[in-house]
């Protein structure tokens, strides 16, 4: 059932608290990333090269920033749900239980160095009216993320859009 505009508006524009990611920027996670991407950029894994570069040492791929903050599968994070999670829950309770990402925009600032701890804030930026899509009816929702390191330097600003939809099952 579609949600009222008034109901949806309640979720927009509320910054979450600063949430610290579970993993520290490290060689192992960089290697796992590069292994899958087949990324041979020496800044990410070649210490000798990276030391002589403008960064003075290994940096993580900037595209990897969100990975350091992904919620663990287990145990569930012990904190109050943020407005994104509350909105996703509200949409799910009305039948829009499936989620697919449709857009991602990242702007990079401070590089991520080994040992950095990445934290982020998130807010709901906008919610579309209900749309009919090939996968079923749903809402496009755009979130704004800001990622910081432990020195409180901005690392990345991200927009992230999902479609939360009531799926037409193929099972």
């Amino acid at each position: 059932m579609p949600l009222t505009e008034e109901k949806l508006k309640q979720f927009v524009g509320i910054d979450s608290e600063l949430i610290e990611g579970p993993d520290t920027v490290c060689k192992e996670m960089i290697r796992h990333w590069c292994e899958v991407m087949e990324d041979t950029n020496p800044l990410y894994q070649d210490e000798e090269y990276a030391q002589k570069s403008q960064f003075g040492g290994i940096i993580a791929p900037p595209m990897q920033v969100q990975v350091y903050t992904m919620s663990p599968l287990w145990p569930k994070a012990d904190r109050e749900p943020n407005s994104m999670e509350l909105l996703v829950e509200e949409l799910a309770s009305q039948g829009y239980t499936s989620i697919v990402a449709t857009e991602q925009g990242q702007e990079y600032f401070a590089p991520m160095k080994l040992g950095d701890r990445i934290s982020y804030t998130i807010s709901v930026d906008k919610i579309s009216p209900e749309k009919q899509t090939v996968r079923g009816p749903g809402y496009f929702v755009t979130f704004l993320y800001k990622f910081y390191n432990q020195r409180e330097e901005l690392v990345c600003k991200q927009t992230f859009t999902i479609l939360a939809y009531n799926a037409i099952s193929k099972e």
Partner: peptide
Amino acid sequence: NILTTNGLIGKYLTDWSGPTGEIKSIVLRL
């Protein structure tokens, strides 16, 4: 997932530019 697509695009860009190319932003739509 979109994060993998984003990673593959980043790899595509610096494969071309070499490591002295510094990615400032990527905006993608699936």
